[in-house]
Structure formats: structure tokens, C-alpha cells
Amino acid sequence: MKIVLNREKLNSFYVQTIKDISLQKIMSCYQCGKCTAGCPVADFMDVVPNEMMRLVMLGEIEKLLSSKAIWLCTSCFQCGTRCPKGIEVHRVFEALRSIALREGKNYTDIEKLSEDVLDEIPQQGIIAGFRKFESLE
């Protein structure tokens, strides 16, 4: 599908919000893809990290907010650690999640989580998990 570009879209409120929340220089990304190359879950993503950076640049934010990839990020910080341009890609992911959550777009249904998992997994996992999946409202 083609992307139609214009000034309004490239500087939309969403794009600005992502910049504000992540504090990252999105436009300094030169698409080397090292973030994707080292991402442990890129194999499972519908939009891989470098594509995410690209789509943010192009202002295609809605596509990202409805992607599965932003929820698959494990926040292992591998992408940001290796970025030659010093972009903390993981913070851009977080910004996208934050926007989605603040708009009430939840990813999973807490009711459906298995009791076994909740019993066994350490609290940090539950908190980290829940925090990404359930908006506070």
C-alpha cells in the first residue's frame, strides 16, 4: 500500500508526542537496521524495529499503534545499546505503547491470563507485563 506524504502528516501531533515522550532524535536514524539485526523477538514482529523508526519518520503512526510489534518488545535495550547513532530505540517503542495505552488500546485481557503463570512468575514479570497491557483507567 502506498504512503501519501505531506507536511501535516510528517509533523502531526502523534509524531510530536512520540518525540516528546521518547526524547529521541528520530530524524537521525539512517536505517542501518542494526536494531532489528540484534532484536531477540524481531522474528515474531509484524513491524521490525528499523521499520518502526522509518514509519515514525513518515508519520505512519496509526499503523504502529495497531501493530503487534510494540507489545512484543521485551525492553531488553539491545537496540538502543547498539544503535550507531545513539538512538534509544526502546524509548520510541515505549512512547508508542504509552500513546496506545493512554488512548485505552489494551493489548491483552487480564482475565485470560493463566493462573499458573501468575502464581509462578516473579513479580517483576507481572508488573512489567501488566504495566504494558492494561491502562490504569
Binding site: K34, T36, A37, G38, A42, V48, N50, E51, R82
Partner: peptide, 25 residues
Amino acid sequence: GRVARIMQEGDKLVVWGVDTLSGRK
């Protein structure tokens, strides 16, 4: 694309890269 990591597995070097043109690792 750029390579993120190289690791030795047996007598092979496993290269983790990316092809940004197809969007795949």
C-alpha cells in the same frame, strides 16, 4: 543492513544481520 552480532557456533560464525529492504532479520 548492518550486522548486530557475530557468534561462534562450532566451526561456523553465525552472523546476525538484517535486510532492511525486505524488513527481515
